[in-house]
C-alpha cells in the first residue's frame, strides 16, 4: 500500500488522449498485483492489461480507485466487475476532485497567499504559507482516498457520500468570495492607489473586474492579450522620436 501511495504521485506521468491515466494507474498498482499473482505470470499480464485501459479521474482522488481496484483483485473479482467498477467510479472522482480541489481549494489558498503577500509578508512567509496549507489538504485527501478505497472496495460510494466532499466544496464558495474581495481591496488601496493619476488605475481595474465577472472564462484571453499589447505599446511609444522616453 505504501508503494502504491508513492507511485500514485506519478499517475499522470504518461497522460494521453486514448487511455488518459491508464499507464500511470497500472504502474501504481504493480507492486500489489505482483504480490497477488506471484505464482501466475499469465494472470499478472492479464491484470496489467485491464488496468492500463482507459481511466480518468482527479489525480488526488485516483487513490480511491487504486485502493478499491486492489481490494477487488484481492477478493478475486472477475474482470467484468473490475472494469465496471472503474468505469463507474471515474466520473464521480473526476467531478468531485475538480470541484473541490481545482475550483475551490486551490483558488482559496492561492488568494489567501496573495493577500498575505500584498499585505507585506516577505517572499519566504508567503510561499511557505501557500505550500504548507495547500499540501496539508492535498496530502490528507490522497491518504484518505487510498485508505477509503482499500477498506470499502466496490462499496466505496457510501464512504464518498459520507465524506461530504461536494458539500465541502460548496462551503468553500463564500470563503473564496471573501478572499477574492480582500485581494481586490488590498490591491485597490495599495498598489493601484499608490500609482496615483487621480484614481485612473482603480477605475481601469474595476472595469476589468466587471468584464471578468460578466463574461467568465471567455474574458481571460482578452485580458492576457490586452496586457501584452499594452506593454508592447508602451515600448513602441517610448521608442518613437520625441516620445515619452
Amino acid at each position: 500500500m505504501g508503494a502504491t501511495f508513492l507511485r500514485s504521485f506519478l499517475v499522470q506521468g504518461a497522460w494521453n488522449y486514448h487511455t488518459m491515466l491508464g499507464t500511470g494507474f497500472a504502474f501504481a498498482l504493480l507492486p500489489g498485483l505482483r504480490r497477488l499473482y506471484r505464482q501466475d505470470p499469465d494472470a499478472l499480464e492479464a491484470a496489467i492489461r485491464r488496468h492500463t485501459e482507459h481511466f480518468n479521474a482527479h489525480p488526488y482522488l485516483t487513490g480511491v480507485a487504486l485502493g478499491a481496484a486492489l481490494r477487488l483483485e484481492q477478493e478475486g473479482a472477475d474482470e467484468g466487475t473490475v472494469r465496471r467498477f472503474k468505469t463507474a467510479v471515474r466520473g464521480p472522482l473526476g467531478s468531485l476532485g475538480d470541484r473541490l480541489v481545482w475550483a475551490s481549494w486551490l483558488p482559496a489558498v492561492a488568494l489567501a497567499s496573495l493577500v498575505i503577500y500584498w499585505l507585506g509578508a516577505g517572499w519566504a512567509w508567503s510561499s511557505a504559507f501557500f505550500l504548507v496549507v495547500y499540501n496539508a489538504g492535498h496530502l490528507a485527501l490522497r491518504v484518505w482516498g487510498l485508505r477509503a478505497g482499500w477498506s470499502a472496495g466496490r462499496e466505496v460510494a457510501g464512504r464518498l457520500r459520507a465524506a461530504g466532499l461536494g458539500e465541502l466544496a460548496e462551503r468553500l464558495g463564500p470563503v473564496g468570495a471573501v478572499l477574492s474581495g480582500l485581494l481586490c481591496g488590498v490591491l485597490g488601496a495599495g498598489p493601484l492607489a499608490d500609482a496615483g493619476d487621480g484614481g485612473l488605475w482603480v477605475a481601469l481595474a474595476s472595469a476589468g473586474f466587471v468584464l471578468g465577472l460578466a463574461a467568465g472564462h471567455r474574458a481571460w484571453r482578452a485580458a492576457a492579450v490586452g496586457t501584452v499589447v499594452a506593454v508592447a505599446a508602451v515600448v513602441v511609444v517610448s521608442s518613437l522620436p520625441g516620445g515619452a522616453g
Binding site: A177, S180, L187, A205, G212, A214, H217, W220, A222
Partner: peptide, 19 residues
C-alpha cells in the same frame, strides 16, 4: 505594476463569476 494589475483584475472577476 498598476498596469499589470489592471489585467489581473479581469481574472479576479472571472473567479467570482466561477464561484
Amino acid at each position: 505594476l498598476a498596469l499589470l494589475i489592471v489585467g489581473g483584475f479581469v481574472s479576479a472577476g472571472i473567479s467570482l463569476h466561477g464561484l
